[in-house]
Design a protein around this nucleic acid. Structure first.
Lengths: 212, 212
DNA sequence: AAATAAGTTGAGGTATGCGTCAAGTTAGGG
DNA sequence: CCCTAACTTGACGCATACCTCAACTTATTT
């Protein structure tokens, strides 16, 4: 059954406030702040959303779906396979750098945010194509796998966090150094195998970052 | 004047407990846990140490001084300048990966931990030599600077944190990819200039990591 | 204009962690 | 052995943040 009109309005205020606050403070922002900003009591928030993950799932997919798709199609549209790959990675890192909420949404998994999780998992599959195309063109070192991509994202995530207040573009330098290591000509044997897909998933899920 | 004997004993217990707890939980571990583990009340801890930084400063330099020096001398002793450089970086990252406390101590600055800060600043100067030697030998891309090294450390820090529970060696892979980008042959123009030294210092100081 | 279902409130309980201080305990010199 | 300065204690106040629920308010239906 439909929500009562006032409830509907509060729900909209809540999601709007969540977008704001997540943008400012990341996905670990206090829920009470979101309620406050929505002009609503904490009880109302919990009344409407089971918990943080439900709120995240109500808000984040709408913020990232279009951008993820844009990054993908842009990459595949690019004539040069290497340029496409690099363009994709850079675009993703730009998203990370532009918004702590996006960074969290892309670096971690929130088990009870089903839509968001589905979106990200799907993205990983699409990216497989981009990587495959680069491999086929001999533009990307052969021992690089899709599961290595999150390593780049994590790296950038930290560089951004450390330097955002001081030199907000420096992550591009760190990423460029890294990308230079991904060309076939740069390749030297790697010391350990890549993450398996389940390992990757577990790593993202257990990444509660700001605590231990 | 000397401490009373019981106070001396408590102080030793406190530093020992701090070493343990910092090792397990990083330098943000609750001080109360340290007091508890030392078999002492929180009051006693605060009685002996002005705050977290003082305790860190009492404990960490002893844990890292020797290892930092070993890494340096080992690097300079290495006949091949590139091997020396890589060996140094890998050794440092091994320290990071082996202990959250070392990771914190090397990735951040604790303004009121004077000894620790001095130690790390000195290290950066020594490392300048290693980088210079690699540059002189044409073994390291010319546009790489000492201030770029912390970018590597931050990158590794995050990869370690994400994967420690799942594939504790995978950081070596991420680092290897990165190092492959540091060879002169791999170099392509970098999009932004390196951090300046003051920027670097500020970035480390403001990196309160686990919060925002 | 009731009646009622739907929704909101906000104080309060839980938990973590910092830092303090009045009261109590103890080491160790005289 | 006893006195006093040195030291320890642990409960307390503060702050943050989670989540709940009994009492209240409001929209909607008839």
């Amino acid at each position: 059954m439909a929500l009562r009109r006032d409830a509907q309005r509060n729900l909209e205020r809540l999601t709007a406030a969540a977008v704001e606050v997540f943008h400012e403070r990341g996905l670990d922002a206090p829920l009470e702040e979101i309620a406050r900003r929505a002009g609503v009591s904490p009880g109302t928030l919990y009344n409407r959303f089971a918990g943080r993950d439900a709120l995240i799932d109500a808000v984040m997919p709408g913020l990232i779906a279009a951008r993820l798709e844009a990054a993908r199609t842009e990459a595949l549209a690019c004539a040069d396979a290497w340029e496409g790959f690099v363009g994709y990675v850079v675009r993703m890192c730009e998203l990370q750098a532009s918004d702590p909420a996006l960074d969290d949404a892309m670096s971690r998994r929130f088990p009870d945010a089903a839509e968001l999780t589905a979106l990200c998992d799907a993205q990983l599959d699409f990216v497989r194509e981009i990587v495959a195309r680069a491999h086929a063109a001999g533009a990307l070192r052969a021992d690089f796998t899709v599961e290595d991509l999150p390593l780049l994202m994590w790296s950038t995530s930290m560089v951004v966090r450390a330097t955002a207040g001081v030199a907000p573009q420096v992550w591009r330098r760190a990423l460029a150094l890294l990308l230079d290591g991904l060309r076939p000509a740069a390749a030297h044997p790697l010391p350990v195998p890549p993450l398996t897909e389940p390992q990757l998933h577990e790593a993202m899920t257990s990444l509660a970052l700001r605590s231990r």
